Structures are given as C-alpha cells and as structure tokens.
Amino acid sequence: IGSLMYASIFGNVSAIIQRLYSGTARYHTQMLRVREFIRFHQIPNPLRQRLEEYFQHAWSYTNGIDMNAVLKGFPECLQADICLHLNRSLLQHCKPFRGATKGCLRALAMKFKTTHAPPGDTLVHAGDLLTALYFISRGSIEILRGDVVVAILGKNDIFGEPLNLYARPGKSNGDVRALTYCDLHKIHRDDLLEVLDMYPEFSDHFWSSLEITFNLRDTNMIPGSPGSTELEGGFSRQRKRKLSFRRRTDKDTEQPGEVSALGPGRAGAGPSSRGRPGGPWGESPSSGPSSPESSEDEGPGRSSSPLRLVPFSSPRPPGEPPGGEPLMEDCEKSSDTCNPLSGAFSGVSNIFSFWGDSRGRQYQELPRCPAPTPSLLNIPLSSPGRRPRGDVESRLDALQRQLNRLETRLSADMATVLQLLQRQMTLVPPAYSAVTTPGPGPTSTSPLLPVSPLPTLTLDSLSQVSQFMACEELPPGAPELPQEGPTRRLSLPGQLGALTSQPLHRHGSDPG
C-alpha cells in the first residue's frame, strides 16, 4: 500500500511539474524568437521594450494561443456562430445594431475584428487614413492633437468618421493612444458598406441611429477645401490634362476667341504652333527640309505637354522668318557652300510665315494684346468667377478644330508651292551661260556676264508674291485673308516669265 501511494503521488507530481515546464519551455522559446528578432533588426531601446511588454501581456492574456488560427480551423457556418458569440456584447448593447435580422448580425459579426491594445500603444496616428470604424468594449483611450489631450473615450464609445457622408476615406486629425488595456472591435469601411448593401432595409436605420462619439476626420483635408492638395495627390493619381488660365478682364471677355491653345513656353509662336517648341509643326519652317525628324516628334510632343491658354504674339512682318533660324542665316552668309535649293526654301518659309499670320487673323479676328503681368498667370479653374468647365471645354474643342483646319490648309498650300517650284525647275534647270562666239564683223562684242542661278530668282519672285499679296490685293481696312490656291498659281508664272525669257546656255562643266 505504501509503495502504491508513493507511486501515485510521485507520478502525479511529476506530471504536474512536467506540464509546468512544458508551458515555461514554450514561453521561453517564443521569447527567444522575439529577442532574436530584436537583435537581428537592431531595434532601439524604447521600441524594444514595448515589443517585450506586449509579448508578455499577450502570452498571459491568451496563454500563447493564436485565436485567429484556431477560429480559421472551423467551417464557415461554425465561424459565424463563434463570431456572433464573441461580439454578442457589442451587437446587443450598441444602439445602431438593434433591430437587425439574424442574418445581418451574422454577416456583421464575420466582418468585425477584435484588437487588444496595451497602455501607451498608439492605435491611430495623425494623418493616417481612416479605413475603419472603432467600437470600444473595454478600457479607455485618449485622443491628442500635438501634445494636447482633446478627448478621453471609454466603454461603448465610437470613434472614426461617418462613412455615409464621404465617398473616400479621410485623414485623422489626431493621435489615438490607449490609456489602459483596451479591447476594441473594428470593422473596415469596405466590409461595412458591403453588408449594408446586402441589407438595404437595415442601412437607413443604421446610419440614422449611429452616433460617433469623436469624429477623427480632418475637415481641412476634404477635397475642394484650401488644404486638400495632399489628399488630392493621394487619391487622384490618374489626373486628366491640367489647364491653367490667364485672368480675363471685362474688356477681354467681350471679345470671342481671344486665346489660343499652345504648349508651355510657346507664347511667341504662331497660331498653328503645336507639339515641339520653336515654330509651326514643332520646328522652324525654314529647317523643315533639312530635319525630317521633326514630323516624327510632333505626335509625342503634342500628347505629353499640358495645355496652356495664352494670348497671341505680336504680328510678324511678311518677309521675316518666324524666328530662331540660325540654319538659314548661316546659309545666307556662306552662300557659296550651301545647297542652291536652300534659297528657294527660304522664300517658301517667308510665304508660310505670311500665310500663317494672315490665317491666324482670319480665324481669330481680334487685335493683338500685350501679355498680362506675371502675377495674373496660372489662375486655377476652381477659383470664384471662372467660367463653367463645359464652356471652357467647348472653347478648347473649337480652337482645336480651327487649328486642324489651319494645319490642313497650310499643308495644301505648301504642296502647291512645291509643285510650282518643281515645275519651274523642270522647265528651266539651273545653269550658267557659256561665252558666246564673236560675230564675223570687226565690231565684236565682249563675252556675256554669267546669269544668276535660278534659286536666287525664285527667292526674289516669291518675296514679290508675298509683298504683292500682303499690300496690293487686300483693300484698305479689310481683314488680311489668305489668297486662294488658283490665284497664287496664276501669279507665280507671271512673275517668273520675264526672268526666264532670256536664252540660257548650259555650261560645259555643268553635270545637269
């Protein structure tokens, strides 16, 4: 009997000691992992102490058991019943959930998450997105703005933001810190809205009876308010094209079509300037034949640059190039080494500058006005007194259609001029006259002087055409309008007829 009692007592005591040691061994194993994590990542002392304290409290609170892992091991129907039991206190005593059906309560219970916070733990920081609604079931918390405590909340209090009033989550206007050990039930806004969409009859009752104890939403960050730039940057990543407008005076608003859609830094370009900076079609017209890549860069430059609305530039004389043409100036200075066709295309550029300027006046029909002061630039669209967005969009579309028509007509005119030049060069190729044979009589004449090349004649003739079109064909006081194609086609051969009437002889060394 004594040996039996000794064996039973010894066996029970050893089993008890073994169970104690097993729990202690698990605790030390998990604690060792936490300390190894702290050492590996070199976490500083204040945060390291918070980690160790939280682990110790969580171990004593749950005995080292992962409740979520245990809950996920059950089937979904059983999980709903378990969640309904775990959140029964909240669902029974909170006013917004009263009167809900059994199915609605089960769906809500599945969406709730339980959070346990030790003292000093910050649940929400200032500036964080308010993605959830919090219900306090135990403990107390404090809300701070800077170093000032603005509120202390306790059991059955609710904090967050009214989700039904805002389409997008706002930002917190303060820090939420736990004063004691707290148990909180939180539900994400997407989950709550999903359940309320499934039960629309409960939705009206819920929003009407929901009383948020403390609204954390920062009202200064609401979209459309003066301080909402940061919020707009976070939620409006896919922005449309940006529009900046110059201020319109009362006198300017009476004149229709007073602005032109141009790229940034293009205030001095012609009315047909689009795409790359520098001139019509993204580059100076005089350098068009020598740089074919300008047409390839036109599309990307047009689509990537934001639109700006600026006044037209001052008018340019008909014979003056659009500006920024070092290529043609070098050719004029060193005409001995340049291609003979460069002079002809220089005359073509003069005609283009004249036609572009006159067509700009035809479509816009307003006098040039000086540029406004820099303080009046970049007025935002949302400022008071601005035109409605639809009106601005319609004006932009009208300007775009005008620019497209202008570009089409300029292309047709350019093709006409090039065809005339090619026809003239085919009839009378460039050549130098040879020395004529002296006559049989004693009164022999001296050799004839060489005839100037055709490109120079073409430049003079085209300059005469531009001056003739600019000065004589337009009646005084009438708006400057571009001439039609047949009129220009008839004027060019008439001007060139006198020049080509002389018999030109080919030089023996000319390969053409």
Rank of each mutant, 00 (worst) to 15 (best):
T426C: 08
R359S: 09
Q464W: 04
K186H: 13
A132R: 06
G324D: 09
P482M: 12
G270I: 10
L193D: 03
M221S: 09
P300T: 12
E473C: 13
S433Q: 15
S466G: 11
T416I: 11
Q483W: 12
F352Y: 14
L474V: 10
E472P: 10
S225A: 11
G154V: 06
P440W: 09
Y432H: 08
L499Y: 09
T445I: 13
A178N: 01
A151T: 09
Q402I: 05
G360C: 11
K155V: 10
Q255P: 10
P388S: 12
D297Q: 04
L341I: 14
K186W: 14
T408K: 14
S509G: 08
V195F: 03
N164W: 07
D250W: 05
L403Q: 04
T131N: 12
D413L: 03
Q502S: 12
L504Q: 05
G170K: 01
A431Q: 14
W207C: 07
T229R: 09
V259W: 08
P476F: 06
Y134D: 02
L496F: 01
N173T: 08
G439S: 11
A132C: 14
M469L: 08
E472I: 08
E329S: 09
E201R: 04
R246H: 10
A431D: 07
D204V: 13
L496P: 12
G263S: 13
S294W: 12
G127D: 03
L192V: 03
G154S: 09
P289T: 06
R308E: 10
S287H: 10
G265P: 10
A371E: 13
A371R: 08
L459S: 12
K240I: 09
P475N: 09
S501D: 15
L376N: 06
Q422T: 12
T213I: 03
F159L: 06
P511T: 07
S208M: 15
L421N: 02
L399G: 03
K155Y: 04
R217F: 01
L403D: 03
Q464R: 10
K155Q: 14
S209M: 12
K251T: 08
S203T: 08
G441E: 07
R274G: 11
Q400S: 13
L481A: 09
D183F: 08
G323D: 07
G257A: 10
L459V: 12
S334L: 08
L130P: 01
G494N: 08
P306L: 09
L410S: 06
R237D: 11
T443A: 06
W207I: 05
L454E: 11
A178G: 02
S313Q: 13
E325W: 06
L192Q: 02
P326N: 04
L449D: 12
Q238A: 13
S203L: 04
E473A: 11
S353K: 15
F245M: 12
G360M: 10
R274T: 04
D147N: 12
H188R: 08
L459C: 06
I152A: 10
Q464A: 10
T131R: 06
S305W: 15
G224F: 11
D252A: 10
I187F: 01
V392F: 15
G127H: 01
G170V: 02
L454G: 11
P169F: 01
G497Y: 13
V176G: 02
S463T: 13
V150M: 11
E298A: 12
A269N: 12
S303F: 13
A167I: 06
F206Y: 03
I379D: 06
E296A: 11
Q255E: 11
K240T: 06
R302A: 12
V148R: 10
L406T: 11
L262S: 11
I351N: 07
F245Y: 14
L216E: 02
E258V: 09
P256E: 12
S375T: 01
S382A: 05
R248E: 10
D357T: 11
D204W: 07
S260A: 10
R316N: 10
G270N: 14
S208P: 07
R387T: 05
L153H: 01
P285E: 13
E254M: 06
L504N: 11
L418P: 04
R217L: 03
P455R: 11
T416F: 04
T249V: 14
L133Q: 01
L130I: 13
P475I: 06
N173D: 06
S272F: 14
I143F: 01
R386W: 15
L449I: 06
P493T: 11
A431P: 08
Q402S: 12
L243C: 12
L449H: 15
S140F: 09
D204E: 11
G324V: 11
H185E: 06
A412T: 04
L210G: 02
I222T: 14
D175M: 12
L327C: 07
V465Y: 04
R145L: 06
G323M: 13
L179W: 02
L341E: 04
S209F: 05
E232M: 10
Y181M: 05
D397V: 10
H205W: 07
R217P: 03
T458C: 12
L410D: 04
G224D: 12
V392W: 15
S273G: 10
K333P: 08
L366I: 14
P264D: 13
D357S: 11
F468D: 09
P380E: 09
T437A: 12
T180Y: 01
A412L: 13
G234D: 11
D175A: 07
G170W: 02
S304P: 08
Q483N: 13
H507G: 13
S209I: 03
L457H: 08
L262N: 10
V451F: 08
S461F: 04
L130S: 01
M425R: 08
H188Q: 07
S294L: 04
I187G: 02
S463G: 09
P315M: 07
S260N: 15
R405A: 06
T437R: 12
S284Q: 05
P503L: 11
N339E: 15
L129R: 10
L403Y: 04
P306M: 06
S137Y: 11
S446F: 10
R389D: 15
F206D: 01
P429K: 08
P321S: 10
V465S: 07
P380I: 03
P482L: 10
A132E: 12
E201M: 04
I222H: 09
L499Q: 05
E472C: 12
A434T: 08
T500C: 15
S375Y: 10
L327D: 08
V465K: 07
P380C: 05
E142N: 04
I222F: 12
Y166A: 07
E329T: 12
N164G: 09
R241P: 06
P503W: 15
L216R: 02
R423S: 06
P169W: 05
K333R: 13
P486S: 11
I143R: 01
P326H: 04
R237N: 07
T443F: 06
G360T: 10
E407N: 08
F202E: 14
S244H: 11
E161R: 02
G160W: 01
L462T: 09
S349T: 11
A371V: 08
G299R: 13
S334R: 09
L376T: 15
G160H: 01
L420G: 08
T500I: 13
D183G: 08
N339P: 06
S291N: 12
G360K: 07
V148K: 11
T458H: 07
D460W: 04
E329K: 10
R168G: 13
L192A: 01
L481T: 10
S335C: 12
